[in-house]
Structure formats: structure tokens, C-alpha cells
Nucleic acid binder design. Sequence first.
DNA 1: TGGGGTTAT
DNA 2: ATAACCC
Length: 452
Amino acid sequence: MKRAEAGEAGSWPVHDQVVPAGSSSSRVIVHVDLDCFYAQVEMISNPELKSKPLGVQQKYLVVTCNYEARKLGVKKLMNVRDAKEKCPQLVLVNGEDLTRYREMSYKVTELLEEFSPVVERLGFDENFVDLTEMVEKRLEQLQSDEPSALTVSGHVYGNQPINLHDILHIRLLIGSQIAAEMREAMYNQLGLTGCAGVASNKLLAKLASGIFKPNQQTLLLPESSQDLIHSLNHIKEMPGIGYKTTKRLEALGISSVRDLQTFSSKILEKELGISVAQRIQKLSFGEDNSPVTPSGPPQSFSEEDSFKKCSSEVEAKNKIEELLASLLNRVCQDGRKPHTIRLIIRRYSSEKHYSRESRQCPIPSHIIQKLGIGNYDVMTPMVDVLMKLFRNMVNVKMPFHLTLLSVCFCNLKALNTAKKGTIDYYLTPSLSTTSRSGKHSFKMKDTHMEDF
DNA sequence: TGGGGTTAT
DNA sequence: ATAACCC
């Protein structure tokens, strides 16, 4: 399989004929990061907004804003009240419906996939692309008769000089040229601006893309990678080290990148587990062997809504119906069929940080069949399933107070490509009622709602 | 903190 | 089913 080869070539450097002959194991990775993505989409929808300070609002938060607004002191995830106080002229648009953002997001990913199919999405506004193969091809084509062909595009981190005799420099330089072409294509074809970082792995490419901020790109050469990671003021700025790990590291007296580099590996493994410990300690040295994993189509679809209070079953049912209706439209567009449905809630709790509970079950096969077509036939039975999940989580005879409801479709399967005689035929749960009798029970640990 | 996503356990 | 991570 092509995917497996690409992954192995990327993640398992040494001894391996999978790595193209003559090349080192070193990769060329680009991280592409759109500028204030939601705000850009809104300005494309309504060009009159381009000249104004603009914020995108979800509930009482300004989740992102354009650079006009940033100049006037508005920050991402700022309270609407604070933002208006800072910037009374701020124009706000509601961004709770992600449909147009999601569509534009996939257009960007598809555009990048035309350069190289190995594109990994990170959220709606970031993509990694493994340019290693593309760079190799350009190197082969590049005969020494064009001297001006070897000039870097964009910034070089630390203004480090490029050594044209160093093959690693040359490869990264060509990566910077491809990155510039990608940004040009995004602007010409989609009207979007963004940043790019080019480096030898995902961590460094991501850090590099954030150096020069709107609509610029930066190349990181290997000799400067230590400078880059030590320019981080705190370990929490290291991608891959999140809120929880940061707290645990701080409890160990680790706060800077150098603290983490020099901390005892043995003790770190005991505290965080061998997997996390080894991974983040490598990150602290700027090492990241994780491959760019092609995202492909989404693994799940979900819709959620948060609110101050939901305390009755009827109220919950109405909200769930809304979420489900939107989801059915999306799943219909996608073409594949979800085989699992999940309901997620968040209970009110005065000061406790963030905890969600969920229940999931297989979608009854008779509902799955009707998914592609008439959307209204499936509403009622699906709501019934969801309300059973709801009552499984929430004791409706007791008072309750929810602040979020979410419905998720996952376990998506392409419809019936299984051919008789293939492995797939015997492993794929039937989508038609007539073939292959019996229960395909597998090891589904899901709650089967029919059992209740 | 919103309204999403992913992978690992 | 939850917990961690990312935006």
C-alpha cells in the first residue's frame, strides 16, 4: 500500500530500502497556517467588512478577529464585553455555524493535495505537507545551468546564511519555493492569505510558520533549530505539551525548554509514563519523527451547542433534534454512512474544569440504509435512539443542569464496496437486508439500545 | 472559553 | 468511555 510506504519512509529513517537511494533520511516539511481564518472567510463573504475591525463571535466570545481589530487591542478568545470596551467600533459576526469555514477549509486541503497527496490537517486552518518527494523530483530536474533557480523564498530564521554546497540547505530552499507557490495558489484560487514554515520535521515547521506573522513564510535551517526551540519562553508553548502535561511538569520544577532537556529521563518516565516522557523530551530537543499522516476524509461529524442551562428532557430533546437535523444534512453530502452515534453532555459544575460524559451505540442497520435518501424518515427513529442514550446518562427523575449537548456520527464506512469472495465481503457488516444472515457482533463494546 | 477535530489508553 | 492533544 502506498500509504504504508510513505509512512515508513518518513518515520523509520536508517537501514531501509524504502528510503529512495541516494537521499538521506532527512525530510522537508511545510506547515501552512491561514491568517485569522474565520475572519478571512467572513470578509470574502462580505467584502465591506475588509476595511473594518472585525470579530467572529461564538456565544459571548470573540473567537478570532482580523488584523484591523488586533491593532486596536482585540485578542483571540476575548470576552465580547471586553472586546467592545477596548474597541467600540468592532464589527461582530456570528460564527457559531461552521459550515462555510469547514467548506473553505477542505478547499485549502484539496489545493495542497494537488502539490503532494501527503497532507495532514490540524484543525480547520492548518495543514502539514511532506514535500520530501517533490523536492527530490525538482532536484533531479534542476540542471546546473540555471543559477537563479537556487534562491530562497521568504525569510530565513535568524538570517542564517544558506550554504549552497550543503544538500540539506538546498532541499529546504526548494521547499521554501514550493511553500511560496502554495501560498500563491491559495491566494489566487481561494483568496486566502496565510503563513508557512519549512523545516525538517512537523514540530520545527510549525514553530517556524509562527515567526513572521501575517502572510509571510520562514525557512528554518538545521543549524538554527536549537535557537528556535530555546526562543520559547515556556514549555507550554511547545506543540504537543498541553495543559495537563504542563501542570505536571511544573510540579517537577520544569518550566523552560532547557529544564526539560536536562531533566532525568528515568524520573520523567516514572512520572509521565514512558510514552509521553520520551516523546516530549525529544520534542524539547526539536526532534519529532512523527510522520505527516494524510488526513483523508473526516473520521467523524459532530454538532454541538452550549448554553447556560438545560434542565428538562423536552428541552434536551428539542436541542438534540436541531443538532441531528444539521448532522443528517452533512452526512448526506458526504456519501459515506456512519455506523455509530454518540451523545455527549456537559453537566453544570460551579468551579470544576471541563468534563464531558458520553454514551454511544451502533446505529440500527435499518436506519443506516435510509441515510442516503429521505432525511425525514430517519429523524424520528434516530431521536429515539439518542433519547435512550440521554436517559442512560441523565436520571431525568432527578433535577439536572446541563450546559452542553453534542451529537456525533462516527465509524464511517464507504457504502458497500465489498465484493464477494474478498476478505472485505466476510468482514463488512451487510448494508442490505437479504445477504448473509446472522449477527455480525464483532467486539462492539457499545451499548446496544435494543437490549434496554 | 467555542465548536469543532484526532489519537491513545 | 474517557483523557489527552490540536485549532
